[in-house]
Write a protein that binds this DNA or RNA. Sequence first.
DNA 1: CCTCCACTGGAAACCTAGGCTC
DNA 2: GAGCCTAGGTTTCCAGTGGAGG
Length: 396
Amino acid sequence: MVDTIDTIFNKAKQGRVLFQDRNALSPEFIPDHLPFREVQIANVAEVLAPALHGSKPSNLLLYGKTGTGKTAVARLVIGKLQSQDDSKQIMTLYVNSRLAGTEYRTLFKIAEGLPLDEEKKIPLTGLSISEVVGRIFQAIQKNAIHFILVLDEIDYLVNAHDDTLYQFTRAGEQVAPGFLTIVGISNDLRFKEGLDPRVLSSLGEEELVFAPYTTEELRSILAERAKVAFKPGVIPEATINLCAALAGSEHGDARRAVDLLRIAGEVAEREGHQRVDEESIRKASDKVERDRVEEALHSLPFQNKIIIIAASKFSAGTNTGELYLAYTNLARKSSVEVLTQRRVSGILAELDVLGLVEAAVVSKGRRGRTKRIRLLIDNETLARVIGEDARLLDLV
DNA sequence: CCTCCACTGGAAACCTAGGCTC
DNA sequence: GAGCCTAGGTTTCCAGTGGAGG
């Protein structure tokens, strides 16, 4: 036993052979130099600069797909702004609306960052949205805060009757002598379409589009990071090239590319290799995908898992009606409530977004219109997750 | 060119769990 | 405790539809 522990620890010590500074590849790491984003950085800085002499900067909207550097640029600039602020009146805050979950929890996060009076602290639930917004405004006004708020994945805040964004963008006199500037970040390029035109006109006072990185740019970014992260000579150029090519074919997502490189390093380290070769990248790529699927599957509600199991009975694919029948049987067997077909159809659409299931709408002419459904989870992963839940084991 | 299937997907209403104020 | 509030999941209702077979 002691021997095994020693072997593991010794291996870990030797692992130092590959990594020099693993942090340079961690997801939270924001390099102070963002290559190929100089123009965007300059633009954001220009828009926000008036804050330094006490006037309200325009609201700003940043667009672009995931991993194009929007978040990194925004955080870099507000960080610099904060450090250059001699008046100490500027306050910057970064909130990711999707990670927060709901509109209310996003507001909760914002309020957390503000100096609220003790009795005005926001509870986790129970208050009306407008009450929370009111308290936030009050805190900004009372303390004359020059508030620059970065709302990442702002699309999650937009729904049918949202006037929260409207209130935020028009806070104006309500928060004087403080002010509130919104920097919105959206992955969804069609985000503007669903937006109330009044909100759009004030939120989009300034706009900036981030194009995906090209494979060549990714290669250069990776090479730069790898130089810091790995010891010299352990990472051949071909490895970087493959890594960039894999991520490049997946819409130029730099975050994914960097993740891939880090995991490949860990894989190579664990296997005791002296170099991170192309094989390690391939293994890392598989692992990333498997982990993503398992993680998503794991956190699914019980009903959704039953639907997945129902889908797994049709290896050749199926359609909504057939799947619903199979689902109904399983749900009865495990004596949970049987959801309606409308709901199951909705859940299938959600699972499709998660990439666990492929649910494409197809027309079969006279024989109607339905979703062609195919499970995108391999049997091993599925079996592992089912194995964790005794209630599910009976169903297979 | 028309029909008509087997659904899709929008909209609204309903329900529950949690928390507020008085 | 009564009477409010909200978020989030669900049901109910239903108009709408792509395209193979007529």
